[in-house]
């Protein structure tokens, strides 16, 4: 039971970590909390559905869906955020809210207000058994995919020049430009990565929920935001830590809270978040940022 709940927590935390990372990457570079991140997920979800309906094999459909998320993120930056470059954090935030609402309306009117079923392949419902211990295929996939994505991102950020430049840009964007590295390349890459992460998270999310609806992205982006803030806004290791922490807390409360208190679960989680922020106002692993006069 306990081992099982740990797996559940890691599986959920992994998805939150991917989403929070996506938010954090963009925030660390352009100071934007992209609330339309959830709609990137929704879009990937619909792309998966469409690809499956068109008869693409499942792996191809997933590839198409994730790429759609990534490209949509880049397009979103070009169309909505680039004209706002250099604007205040507040105006950027409001722009992202506007983009998010607009996309929701487009999904509702263009597709349907009602959830659309996404039939997952049969092998996703099943379980491995080790003795009397069973672990579901669903959570296993979540854990493996999140782990691989986190490792791949880490390798990219450590090894590649662009990745290194992104870490540097999070600290001091101007100086990165002084090195001759184009700002637009860094920003586009940041959005591309965040879109990839949103697309991957969407796949895991849809695999667990078997449907997509226009408001699908709302809850996860909220959770990701909480995770990113708890971890230290703009800090990538912080986002991952925050994501896993949130997953653990949610599963723990879900598993142990008596039914009568269950409705207050979200309130309890948020109180926990506030407590963390009181003790560590900059989050668990604060972002490094150049101190400038």
């Amino acid at each position: 039971m306990i081992a099982q709940q740990i797996i559940n927590a890691v599986s959920l935390g992994g998805v939150y970590a991917l989403l929070a990372l996506g938010l954090a990457i963009v925030f660390s570079i352009v100071g934007l909390i992209n609330f339309a991140h959830g709609e990137l997920m929704t879009l990937s979800g619909y792309a998966l559905l469409a690809s499956l309906v068109l008869g693409f094999p499942f792996p191809v459909a997933v590839l198409v869906a994730v790429s759609c998320g990534a490209l949509a993120a880049v397009a979103m930056e070009r169309i909505a955020f680039r004209p706002m470059r250099g604007a205040s954090v507040t105006s950027l935030l409001l722009t992202s809210f506007a983009v998010s609402s607009l996309l929701k309306v487009v999904f509702q009117n263009g597709i349907s207000a009602r959830p659309q079923a996404v039939a997952m392949p049969g092998w996703m419902t099943g379980a491995f058994s080790f003795g009397d211990f069973t672990i579901g295929v669903g959570p296993s996939i979540s854990i493996v995919v999140s782990a691989l994505a986190l490792i791949a991102l880490e390798v990219f950020l450590r090894r590649s020049v662009t990745g290194t430049a992104m870490r540097a840009a999070a600290e001091d964007f101007d100086v990165v430009r002084l090195m001759g590295i184009p700002a637009s390349r860094i920003i586009a890459t940041a959005f591309l990565l965040s879109g990839l992460l949103a697309g991957l998270a969407a796949m895991l999310w849809v695999a667990q929920r078997a449907s997509v609806d226009p408001l699908m992205g709302f809850t996860p982006v909220l959770k990701a935001f909480i995770a990113a803030v708890v971890g230290g806004l703009g800090s990538l290791p912080g986002a991952v830590a925050g994501g896993f922490l949130l997953g653990v807390i949610e599963v723990l409360l879900q598993a142990t809270l008596p039914g009568a208190i269950a409705p207050y679960r979200d309130a309890i989680v948020l109180s926990g978040v506030i407590a963390v922020l009181l003790v560590r106002p900059q989050g668990l692993i604060p972002a490094v940022r150049a101190q400038r006069s």
């Binding site: 870490r167 540097a168 600290e171 101007d174 002084l178 590295i181 006069s293």
Partner: peptide, 29 residues
Amino acid sequence: ARKGVALVPEGRRIFASLTVADNLRLGGA
């Protein structure tokens, strides 16, 4: 910068969270 003008800014502004190696790497990227 690509035209061959380099600025060493006031207060150095090295990338504190990056290693010396990575700082140099970006300089010559």
